[in-house]
Design a protein around this nucleic acid. Structure first.
Lengths: 265, 265
DNA sequence: CTCGTTATTCCATTATTTGGAACTTAATTT
DNA sequence: AAATTAAGTTCCAAATAATGGAATAACGAG
């Protein structure tokens, strides 16, 4: 009955919630607060419907409406996120190993997981300056141009990987960004063999990283950890050396997951 | 038809969204992952409805369903929150002044705003150990037992304050926690006169703070900043001295808001 | 294998959402 | 100041999506 094989991008099967989430997405991804008319143009929902939807979102604290009639992300989202983060077992288990890795290398260490087509960063340890956490934690980055992302992709079974690649649309961030599924797939196959991935200034010019895949046994978490830093300090040769400790830390995290989560299943 | 005059607590006027948010609240506020039956008992929604609601929330990434059939907060919430936080103007303007205050006192500095009956912490600057941001940022704390909370309440017009107090239910966290609207109101009146508030170990034993109110001209942000630390180091006398720099920093933040946001209105 | 528990699916009924249009309010121009 | 245009809000009959009781399926312990 309800075949969904066409090329329509944003079709959702989640009823009212899906429509509301489109709005939340629009507002949170915009460069600044949006007025009603702006959202009307972007969302393509009828006036009456849109107005009620926005009112409900504001009422629930998911959006905020300022004195100039502009909609911005609501602060209630922070409370939800803080709780989500505070009790995340993957992160809790990984934390000490990230700190170790930071100590060993002196560079910034990240933990991220694959959610849909994005990598969501769960943790960051940076030894040098006081950390501005939200600056990176929680941020969703594309999977095809980050070390953690490519490491995660290398863990997917062929069919799931193919599906994901098929749905991907590439944005060129730098000269080295993958912009086709073919070259990306080729690199992912290599990564699957080697067990580690590089980001060769693919997301941000001047920034390199080496990453290793990490996953939980039930596959709830498919992601990776990485060491990131400026290209002038992190030669490709150095990154190749660091692949070893990164993989070791990844192994320790997975062992920690097995011990903590294994018995229950 | 749908009279709503009874004592039912959680009645919402936001249709489907309201019901979904109740579920998000339940899961994010629980001590750990919840099974379907747990939620069924807590939410009081019929089986079929609940099941569909949960499925939709999972599909949208707001909840996650692990291999044992337990629901936990979803990581998509982190992405929303990170964006909400990153562009929050109040926080951006306050940031340098919080850092100054931290430098001047050596203790932890917080920025929070009133949302409903809660204070949501927008920022934290702690000079000593590397900051675990989410540990505090984003967390919603009760307004009646935090310095920032009481400072914020002192800014409310009498009628809004009365409404808020009427809806408050008090939890005794320590021996000094306010547990009645009367004593709280009395202190708030004092704070309104003095221009600063203390937390005398009211939320957590052994932790004190001094706070000053901060607000934006359009009243979108009503909150405060505080200096927090252990009681053995922060005597009440010292806190009284620090009221001055805290108020000064608060003034600077408000001046910053006026300059940045004033022209637009 | 069986029983008790927990989770999922089904579908006629009903309540909610929908969305075009009318209306109000605010901003801009003459 | 009045007129004009744009922006935001409310309304309500029609259509659709949510509802929820009951049946089914999956799981787990004894």
């Amino acid at each position: 009955m309800n075949s969904n094989g066409d090329g329509m991008a944003q079709a959702r099967e989640t009823g009212t919630l899906g429509k509301l989430m489109v709005l939340l997405d629009l507002v949170t991804h915009a460069d600044g607060p949006l007025r009603f008319t702006d959202i009307l143009a972007l969302a393509g929902q009828p006036r009456g419907t849109l107005h009620r939807h926005l009112s409900h979102l504001v009422e629930e604290g998911l959006l905020e409406l300022d004195g100039d009639g502009r909609y911005a992300p609501g602060l209630r989202l922070l409370d939800f996120a803080a709780r989500s983060w505070a009790r995340n077992e993957f992160r809790l288990i990984a934390e000490p190993h990230l700190a170790d890795l930071q100590q060993a290398t002196g560079e910034t260490v990240h933990l991220g997981v694959l959610r849909g087509q994005s990598i969501i960063y769960l943790d960051k340890v940076d030894g040098r300056q006081p950390v501005r956490m939200y600056s990176q934690i929680g941020n969703a980055s594309p999977c095809y141009c980050t070390g953690v992302g490519k490491a995660a992709l290398s863990l997917l079974p062929a069919d799931r990987l193919a599906d994901l690649l098929a749905g991907l649309s590439f944005t060129r961030f730098t000269a080295s960004t993958h912009v086709s599924a073919e070259t990306l797939l080729a690199e992912i196959r290599e990564i699957a063999v080697e067990g580690y991935a590089f980001d060769r200034e693919e997301h941000e010019a001047g920034i390199r990283c080496v990453a290793a895949p990490v996953w939980s046994e039930d596959r709830t978490f498919i992601g990776g950890i990485s060491i990131t830093g400026p290209a002038y300090r992190l030669s490709m040769e150095l990154l190749r050396q660091w692949a070893v400790p990164v993989q070791r830390a990844a192994g320790q995290i997975m062992e920690g997951m097995r011990i903590r989560l294994g018995p229950r299943r």
